[in-house]
Design a protein around this nucleic acid. Structure first.
Lengths: 330, 330
DNA sequence: GGCGTTTTGGAAACCGCTTTCCATAGAGAA
DNA sequence: TTCTCTATGGAAAGCGGTTTCCAAAACGCC
């Protein structure tokens, strides 16, 4: 077992002091070219790598960003992570990722763990209360939320209200009269989507009907078919909180012998990679997940490098992707 | 800006020395009940949290595990992470996750970054050479590979050879005569799958035909349809390296007007959550991704807590899930 | 050649916690 | 009452870097 090389040994090898080695390695202070060369030579000869924790302890900066996502099995969040990873790499930060497993207690644990290891956090799909999130945010250790707008906290979000208005209007334009909304967990995103749905229906003079998903995933969607089945009037269209639920729902409807879109049109929010590959292919408002990750990371790095008082809120827009699940040809 | 509380201030508040506080908090040495109570009271009054990096620097252990996965967009790896996270939490370790983005250079960077932050690493779907991986492994900082068997390195793998033998035999049993294998990247998993495929064909007296995916994902699968199209004889069945590729392939075949499974049967390896939801649903050898994550993490923790000389190799088995994409009813 | 600047590089304090070793006090034994 | 032993808690030396200051050397200039 080789003990790792320490800065002292590099210093001895180069015939200088540890502080000189540190300065050369970090470019903190110019040294005579000859000295720098000796240091670099010693470093590569000994294969020196600075001890990360000693460094962080000393400098107080880790050049790491924490990303906490709601559920790693949901493609929305993994795409977001991809975007975050890319921008972080460009700005030479390391991303430390954690999966909250849709569990607020676990989320808090992970946040604490990541807070201790990083310079700042991105919370994507948090299930914490607004107060808890506000309490977490500080100029020294900033937080950026994704999919959550809270006063005083920087965020990157989609204009979900408009997205929902558009998606619902699309169904109305298809001639649907009884449009049900399958609601997700009662957080910001769902609130906005439900509001847009209700407003669109009201403008068209239609009555809303909201049912709640047990969980915002495949299984929840499958279970929702039972709810729909019991609903009167039986809807001729469903707006789903996310596309995972829509996919589960469509699978379940198929086994029930309900035809999509002929008997029920289905539409959702998301950007599931297989939305276009299903039969019928799935209509959705495409959420730019990856872009959200990129923007959130960019914003966080910005906040770290020049702290600001006001909480910046970045807004993106979803795009309607009409597909077979909602196109009704009479 | 509140400065974080240090152990010294807790000590002062409790009227003891920092070493006493440390001992009470870590349970390193028994103290008089009254003293312990004073320390705990001071801790909660001041809201003290030990500085992680100081702690790690001092003890040399971080109680964190690094998990490097090939591609976070691939459900196989995210399921694996889920399993890893669960076991790590049970053993009170923190998982630090990194996405190698199928890029060996990036992978090495991430490994170095995680090596500095963790007590041990899990490499799932590594694209490094055997030599590089062996060089990374050491009893002090063990590595466990998933989906890769290398002499001297602990690993958790599926018996891919047998899995492939079974899957190919299944297609042969369906009466297929011209079975093509769509190969993935030339690493252990693909080698084993290809070997199983070849052996199954040979036993049946059939001729193998191997084509290579550009990438082992949706896009690669879509692009592969062109290769198939050009192949003579045109196959009546395809074994795909993974189910992402199979899904892409089936989508592409659909646009070409080739019927699955009537004209071409399709089968793959993996456990994509939508495999059963597609039309036609996808036959595959189900890889227990989550279980692999659990086992790898359990093994790694074991290795950390009682280091061993010999490199343990854990083996799991895949299960055939016959579905519509390969069931040919004449 | 003398003097004021720059360069160059080292000493030492510090980051915040753990841990070893040692001193003291109180309990129990004789 | 004295002595030994154990329970309790503190002092100080790390862990491995960074950074502030300061001294010495080298330089330019008159």
């Amino acid at each position: 077992m080789r003990k790792p090389v320490r800065i002292f040994e590099v210093a001895r090898e180069a015939g200088v002091s540890p502080s000189t080695v540190s300065k050369v390695l970090n470019g903190t202070q110019r040294m005579a070219a000859a000295t720098e060369a000796r240091v670099w030579k010693a470093v590569s000869k000994l294969g020196y790598h600075a001890n990360l924790h000693a460094q962080i302890l000393s400098t107080g900066r880790s050049r790491a960003l924490g990303v906490v996502i709601l559920d790693i099995l949901n493609p929305h969040f993994t795409a977001l992570v991809k975007g975050a990873g890319q921008v972080a790499a460009e700005r030479s930060y390391t991303v430390l990722l954690a999966d909250a497993e849709e569990n607020p207690r676990r989320e808090q644990e992970l946040i604490q763990s990541l807070k201790a290891r990083t310079d700042g956090l991105i919370l994507a799909g948090s299930r914490l209360s607004d107060e808890e999130i506000v309490a977490l945010h500080s100029p020294e250790q900033p937080i950026v939320t994704v999919g959550r707008r809270i006063a005083g906290v920087p965020s990157v979000t989609v204009d979900e209200y408009t997205a929902s208005l558009q998606l619902t209007s699309h169904l109305i334009a298809q001639g649907c009269k009884h449009i049900t909304y399958l609601a997700g967990p009662p957080f910001w995103v769902n609130q906005e989507r439900e509001r847009g749905y209700r407003d669109a229906l009201q403008q068209a003079g239609l009555a809303p009907q909201v049912l709640s998903l047990t969980t915002p995933d495949l299984l929840g969607g499958e279970q929702a078919s039972a709810l729909l089945w019991a609903a009167r009037p039986f809807p001729d269209a469903v707006v789903c909180y996310n596309d995972l639920a829509a996919i589960g729902l469509m699978a379940s409807l198929k086994t029930l012998g309900v035809k999509v879109p002929q008997e029920v049109a289905v539409a959702a929010f998301g950007n599931h990679p297989l939305a276009a590959h299903l039969s019928p292919s799935l209509t959705h408002m495409e959420i730019p997940s990856r872009k959200l990750g990129e923007l959130a990371t960019g914003l966080l790095v910005e906040l770290l490098e020049c702290p600001r008082e006001e909480a910046i809120q970045v807004i993106q827009y979803a795009v309607l992707r009409p597909r077979e699940s909602s196109i009704i040809r009479v």
